[in-house]
Nucleic acid binder design. Sequence first.
DNA 1: TTGTGATTTCGCAATTATGCGAAATCGTCC
DNA 2: GGACGATTTCGCATAATTGCGAAATCACAA
Lengths: 106, 106
Amino acid sequence: MTLKQRTAVFKALGHPARLRIVEALDGGERCVQDLVQIAGLGWSTVSRHLSVLKQAGVLDDEKRGQQVFYRVKLPCLSELTRCLDRPSSRRSSCGTEGCSTGRRRD
Amino acid sequence: MTLKQRTAVFKALGHPARLRIVEALDGGERCVQDLVQIAGLGWSTVSRHLSVLKQAGVLDDEKRGQQVFYRVKLPCLSELTRCLDRPSSRRSSCGTEGCSTGRRRD
DNA sequence: TTGTGATTTCGCAATTATGCGAAATCGTCC
DNA sequence: GGACGATTTCGCATAATTGCGAAATCACAA
């Protein structure tokens, strides 16, 4: 997965409506109607958000009858969301002299 | 962690320069000079990116002497990045009748 | 206390994202 | 085959992001 693709995943999740949608889909697939309710936005807006998520590879869709169902395609997202609830810190052993020097002004 | 905070984390990571910086910091803390090189952008631009990441809670900074060192604050990010490299799919058991109905036009 | 290097803050112009309604598709059911 | 319901695409106005250089801080050495 390239940097651009990884960036697209995060960017897709970096919007409250889209994140809410993805988290709702963690409980199983949903049709667009449900997601419109969950997002609290207009049809066209939600549709565009869904296409962003789909293009980033976060979601997958399937048409059954006249409804389209979306589901989460990336397996690790729910774990990350769970992880975000218990933050911690991390140290590194890089000293002051590990940094490059000799930089001029802006 | 609220929805807005979680969104801020993803949004912060949803930019190629910022993601590159965070991934570079996975190997240990770095000073701003190094990050400017890694990002390949101007000082002021990198500084703003760093402040976005810091405000989102992704990074932590520490001033030592006249240099500022940044490090990753969220522990689960490297795992997610590793996870993004091996995608898979997920099924759910939600049938067609599980969806709400009765929606009018736009 | 002046100078210098490291970093941040401040406007500014250009690009991109967002939300909406109207119109277009696409299946399904008389 | 026409109407209808579900969803997407399009065009537009507004808001947010991005990148830059200039100026401002801040710490330290001469």
